[in-house]
């Protein structure tokens, strides 16, 4: 456990001490501020516009950081040859992968909390006359942020997997494709139903079951923000637990694959 914590802390420090992260943070804050301007153009929808734009900014910036940092997660260690220092110690492959993943995941959590805190303050600022009204938004906002974070956990796991066997550019491309397909799962299902060729239909159906359904996350997030209640069948908590378990299961599978690939690696 100490080994995993040490590798996680090192990764956390590495990402947070990279100045580019702060540039992204400022950028996300500026986009959120732009929401105030757009809100003034609407009629009585100020808070919703600030929330929507802020969440989109957090999701986008978090995604960029997750994809690029995840794609470099293992490759950077190889390129800089710091991996020799790690694997000449009694460190196992899975400890290394898990430590790197947890380090990046906790770093993203910090960034999301910082950006979320800024957005929360902005919501309070938009409606200063009624702090109680602004406060009612915060639990929904927090829940939506949690879903954004859940998606980022999946993205860094897939980027970590690709970074164990390909260059950062290829890892970024693979991860973006995986992400995009994950968001188009319904289309895969439709293609499977539409196709008259049974082989093609089976292929798309298999692909649908294989790929993560990230669309559900976005759908639930939208329902949280717009409907303020989940219309999908079953209780709200139940669905959130299901989504969390679903994504975490994918994360575990991806991390196990990363560790297996890394285990087979030689360090010439």
């Amino acid at each position: 456990m100490q080994i995993i914590a040490a590798i996680a802390l090192n990764t956390f420090r590495e990402v947070l001490r990279d100045k580019i992260i702060y540039a992204f943070f400022v950028f996300a804050c500026l986009i959120s501020l732009f929401g105030i301007l757009l809100g003034t153009l609407s009629v009585g929808q100020d808070i919703r516009i600030v929330e929507d734009l802020g969440l989109a900014a957090i999701s986008l910036i978090g995604g960029i950081i997750a994809v690029f940092s995840g794609a470099n997660l293992v490759f950077k260690e190889l390129e800089r040859r710091t991996i020799y220092l790690i694997f000449s110690k009694p460190v196992k492959s899975w400890q290394f992968i898990l430590g790197k993943y947890l380090g990046l995941a906790s770093c993203l959590l910090t960034i999301i909390l910082m950006m979320g805190g800024f957005l929360g303050a902005l919501v309070g600022f938009v409606d200063p006359t009624s702090p109680a009204n602004a406060l009612t938004h915060l639990p929904w906002l927090a829940l939506s942020l949690a879903l954004v974070y859940l998606e980022l956990l999946f993205i860094i796991a897939s980027a970590s997997l690709f970074s164990t066997f390909s260059t950062p550019i290829m890892s970024v491309l693979f991860t973006l494709c995986f992400w995009l397909v994950g968001h188009s799962c319904a289309s895969l299902q439709d293609l499977a139903k539409m196709s008259t060729n049974p082989a093609v239909s089976k292929f798309f159906a298999a692909l649908y079951w294989l790929m993560p359904d990230l669309q559900s996350l976005t759908r639930v997030r939208s329902e949280l923000m717009y409907g303020r209640a989940l219309t999908t069948g079953g209780g709200q908590g139940e669905l959130l637990i299901y989504l969390t378990t679903y994504i975490l299961a994918y994360v575990i599978i991806l991390l196990v694959l990363s560790a297996l690939i890394n285990e087979r690696r030689e360090l010439p």
């Binding site: 080994i3 040490a6 090192n10 420090r13 001490r17 800089r80 040859r81 220092l85 000449s88 110690k89």
Partner: peptide, 25 residues
Amino acid sequence: FLPENPYFYSHLTGREFLTFVGKLF
């Protein structure tokens, strides 16, 4: 083990790096 032309994590101080290595053991 001391590798040839060692490169260490440039974001860590010498003390942080040694502590990190100690934790790996």
